[in-house]
């Protein structure tokens, strides 16, 4: 039993975890990017400038993919109906949850890499040099995903966590100018690449977002290690 539950090289285990996460959650980043491409096509059709189109395409990667992963994270944590059973198994619940989130992030990463490669190949890429392209989406994904996890665990509510993530995302979009112009808030601005390019302070911003995301994840994992800490969809 223990071998089956802990053999991370087993495709069966990953297939099972992937099914537990669900098609909808795993497809959310791809679906959100598809909507972004549709809006980009609208913009191009309406005579949008090349700069606007490139910025919009980059927004899909930097803003939309992290949002999709964050909201899907809330769902993955809260949808498990067998948590009590997990607590009786010889594998820590947080390990199982980690595997499930890995399948979610893996699907999002594959989507983001294919999307970035397609933009580079077609000449629509306006971000940093191609090898650094993951820096466009990984830091905001970690920061927003970490926020989603901590809000879900602490708030114990799908609504609270989803609303918190949504409000943070919208507030960063609405107050982009003031967040990017202040030295104190610029490192924590999620959408620096698509809004203001890779100029001054970009690397510091990516570093600060990554560290913030990892810290939030570490706190969430610590909190989840307590038995019964994770909320369910009806614990609202």
């Amino acid at each position: 039993m223990r071998a089956v539950l802990t053999d991370v090289s087993s495709p069966l285990l990953w297939r099972y975890e992937s099914r537990r996460v669900g098609v909808a959650a795993q497809a959310a980043p791809a679906a959100a990017l598809a909507v972004t491409l549709l809006l980009t096509a609208f913009t191009a059709n309406a005579g949008g400038s090349r700069a606007d189109i490139e910025r919009l395409l980059l927004t899909g990667l930097e803003a939309v993919v992290p949002l999709a992963v964050a909201v899907a994270t809330v769902t993955v944590i809260t949808r498990d109906r067998c948590r009590e059973l997990h607590l009786a198994l010889p594998v820590r619940y947080v390990t199982t949850l980690g595997r499930r989130l890995a399948t979610l992030v893996g699907a999002a990463a594959a989507t983001a890499v294919i999307y970035s490669a397609a933009l580079v190949a077609t000449g629509w890429w306006s971000g940093p040099a191609a090898p650094a392209s993951p820096l466009v989406w990984v830091p905001p994904l970690l920061a927003l995903g970490g926020l989603a996890m901590i809000l879900t665990v602490v708030g114990r509510s799908v609504v609270l966590a989803s609303s918190g993530v949504a409000a943070t995302w919208l507030a960063q979009q609405l107050y982009a100018a003031s967040l990017a112009s202040h030295a104190g808030s610029r490192p924590f601005f999620l959408f620096l690449t698509s809004r203001y390019g890779t100029g001054e302070g970009w690397l510091l911003n990516r570093f600060a977002l990554t560290v913030t995301g990892l810290c939030l994840l570490a706190v969430a994992v610590t909190a989840l290690s307590r038995p019964g800490a994770a909320p369910g969809e009806e614990e609202q």
């Binding site: 909808a24 497809a27 959310a28 679906a31 959100a32 939309v64 899907a72 809330v74 769902t75 949504a166």
Partner: peptide, 14 residues
């Protein structure tokens, strides 16, 4: 599904 709706709803609102 609710998660996909929530993602698209935030994007739509903006």
């Amino acid at each position: 599904t609710a998660p996909l709706f929530r993602v698209l709803f935030v994007g739509y609102w903006f």
